[in-house]
Simulated scan of single mutants.
Amino acid sequence: MTIGASNTTGYARFLGTCLGALCSIGAWYITGGNAFRLAVVGFVMALGPFYMIIVKGKGPMGRFILLTYNLSVLYAFSYSQIDGSEQDDGGEQLDITKIALHRVISVISGCIWGIIITRGIWPIRARTKLNDTLHLLWFRLGLIWKSDPLNTMATAEASMPVLYMNSHDKNEIERLLSQLENLQVSARSEFELKSPFPDTEYSNIIRQTRGIVSNFHSMNLILVNTPTPSEGQISLLRYTAAVRQQLSERIGHLLAAMASSIVLESSSSDVPTNIKDSRDRLLAQISHYRQGRMASSLTDGEDYVLLSSFVLVTQLLSNEISEIMVELGRIFPVSDDEVSVNADRV
């Protein structure tokens, strides 16, 4: 458990336990320990915690309200069923306040011990884990894009549909994506003197990262709908292979630069994110191919859809990457020393 998650959960457990203890004491004195009255009051009381869990999404607090209430009331009711002679022998009388108080003390002790573990013995910072998860996700996306399945399609030797992401890649990417928002929530609760958590910037980064993954899925769908490339498509892909590979490597390089930037906690403002030159060279080569004699005999309008979609998706990826770079620059601003070094180089 991260430090932020420990802070958030510890607060919810403490508050939920206190509320559950108060409810159990009130319910016991209202019902007088009657089983039927306790059942009715317990049903009504449970509506509030269930509303918190299901509607408000405050699972830990709602669960601990119910847990403390049930444990306190059930223990008190069980104790009240003991014969009076047995209670006299033990020398103790029923006091639900003590039962609830013991529960509160035990939970507080557990929360304190959890804070000691997560902060002193085995600290796991949610901010660091969030950065590491983004690093792994971006690096994996960069490798996937640089693989350029269109080259495999151009060889006309693929025995099955060529895709950017197979089922394993999809599952791994979705697993990493699902962790981001939970880690962001935990990071908000990590209090540091250095600087507050840049919640807005990370929200934008996560949203834009989801946009990048959506563009990958879009390209996957296009390839799924093109299981067997035509002779014209193969000819066009071979003709543009070198320039297209440069564009793919450029996108992969930008994703790798983002991954390095966030894991090193440094700005990548000096990395140019514009792919206009590479894109224009590819478009020029497509136009040159279209004007040649070979195009008139091998290709038709539909054969250009795949490569045109590739150009469009790369532009969308470039836009998302540029926005992420801006957010990274806000999170990790360039220091004065780096500015002076860059000025000396110029």
Rank of each mutant, 00 (worst) to 15 (best):
residue 246 Q to S: 15
residue 285 Q to T: 06
residue 134 L to Q: 05
residue 158 A to H: 10
residue 173 I to H: 04
residue 104 V to I: 15
residue 3 I to F: 01
residue 68 T to F: 06
residue 72 S to G: 09
residue 83 D to I: 03
residue 190 E to G: 09
residue 145 W to M: 09
residue 228 T to S: 12
residue 279 R to P: 11
residue 85 S to N: 02
residue 9 T to F: 04
residue 273 T to F: 13
residue 260 S to Q: 14
residue 307 L to H: 00
residue 212 I to M: 15
residue 338 E to R: 14
residue 294 M to P: 01
residue 65 I to Q: 09
residue 89 D to V: 06
residue 328 L to Y: 11
residue 186 S to L: 01
residue 194 K to D: 04
residue 33 G to V: 10
residue 308 S to N: 15
residue 259 A to L: 03
residue 284 A to R: 04
residue 285 Q to K: 13
residue 38 L to S: 10
residue 234 I to D: 00
residue 327 E to R: 13
residue 215 N to Y: 03
residue 236 L to A: 00
residue 106 S to V: 14
residue 30 I to E: 08
residue 59 G to N: 02
residue 299 T to V: 13
residue 236 L to T: 01
residue 265 E to D: 08
residue 295 A to Y: 02
residue 130 L to N: 12
residue 27 A to R: 00
residue 310 F to L: 12
residue 112 I to A: 13
residue 62 G to C: 07
residue 236 L to C: 03
residue 202 Y to I: 10
residue 109 S to E: 07
residue 126 A to P: 09
residue 134 L to G: 06
residue 332 F to S: 08
residue 205 I to W: 04
residue 287 S to P: 02
residue 239 Y to S: 00
residue 278 S to A: 09
residue 67 L to I: 14
residue 183 L to S: 05
residue 56 K to N: 07
residue 90 G to A: 07
residue 89 D to K: 13
residue 69 Y to A: 02
residue 16 G to Q: 10
residue 49 P to W: 01
residue 307 L to P: 03
residue 183 L to W: 05
residue 309 S to H: 13
residue 141 L to T: 03
residue 215 N to C: 13
residue 85 S to K: 03
residue 201 E to P: 09
residue 327 E to G: 06
residue 190 E to I: 08
residue 153 M to H: 06
residue 241 A to D: 13
residue 224 V to A: 04
residue 6 S to G: 03
residue 112 I to G: 09
residue 80 S to D: 14
residue 231 E to F: 01
residue 185 V to F: 00
residue 33 G to W: 02
residue 304 Y to V: 10
residue 64 F to H: 10
residue 149 P to H: 03
residue 86 E to R: 08
residue 2 T to M: 02
residue 138 W to P: 08
residue 204 N to P: 05
residue 141 L to E: 07
residue 168 H to P: 01
residue 186 S to N: 05
residue 172 E to L: 04
residue 76 A to K: 04
residue 321 I to W: 14
residue 194 K to Y: 05
residue 11 Y to G: 06
residue 287 S to R: 09
residue 28 W to C: 11
residue 325 M to P: 02
residue 251 I to N: 12
residue 22 L to E: 02
residue 13 R to P: 09
residue 181 E to P: 05
residue 268 S to Q: 12
residue 62 G to P: 04
residue 238 R to V: 00
residue 81 Q to N: 12
residue 151 N to A: 11
residue 208 Q to F: 14
residue 152 T to P: 01
